[in-house]
C-alpha cells in the first residue's frame, strides 16, 4: 500500500471508531484501534510527502490522546469523525 492508501484506511477506521463510540461498542473500538495502529506503523515505513507531514503529526498527537482515553460519548465520537474527514480530504496529499 502506498501512503495515500494507508491514510484512507486510517480515515475509514476513524469513521468506524466514531460510529462505535456513538453506539457504545467498546470492544469493537479496541479491536479497530489495534488495526489502526498497524496502519500508522506502516505509514511510518513509507515516504510521506512534505505537505502532508504536519497533518500526520497533528493526527498522531490527537489519536494517541484518544487511545489513552476511550470514551463512549459524543465528544470522543465527534473527534474521531473529524479526523476521518480530515484524513479523507488530505489522503491525496500524502
Amino acid at each position: 500500500m502506498n501512503s495515500t492508501d494507508l491514510v484512507l484506511n486510517i480515515a475509514v477506521n476513524m469513521g468506524r471508531l466514531s460510529r462505535w463510540a456513538q453506539e457504545g461498542k467498546k470492544e469493537r473500538i479496541k479491536q479497530f484501534i489495534t488495526d489502526t495502529d498497524w496502519y500508522i506503523d506502516q505509514i511510518d515505513e513509507v515516504a510521506v510527502k512534505l505537505q502532508f507531514r504536519p497533518t500526520l503529526k497533528a493526527f498522531k498527537e490527537k489519536y494517541n490522546l484518544m487511545k489513552q482515553d476511550i470514551r463512549l460519548d459524543r465528544d470522543w465520537a465527534e473527534d474521531a469523525l473529524t479526523w476521518a474527514n480530515v484524513l479523507t480530504h488530505r489522503a491525496k496529499l500524502a
Binding site: Q51, T55, R74, E78, A84, N85, T88, H89, R90, L93
Partner: peptide
C-alpha cells in the same frame, strides 16, 4: 460539515 483549507473540499458530516 467541514471545509478543508488545504484541499478546498467540503464535507457534510456531523453528529
Amino acid at each position: 460539515g467541514g471545509f478543508d483549507l488545504e484541499t478546498k473540499e467540503v464535507d457534510y458530516d456531523s453528529m
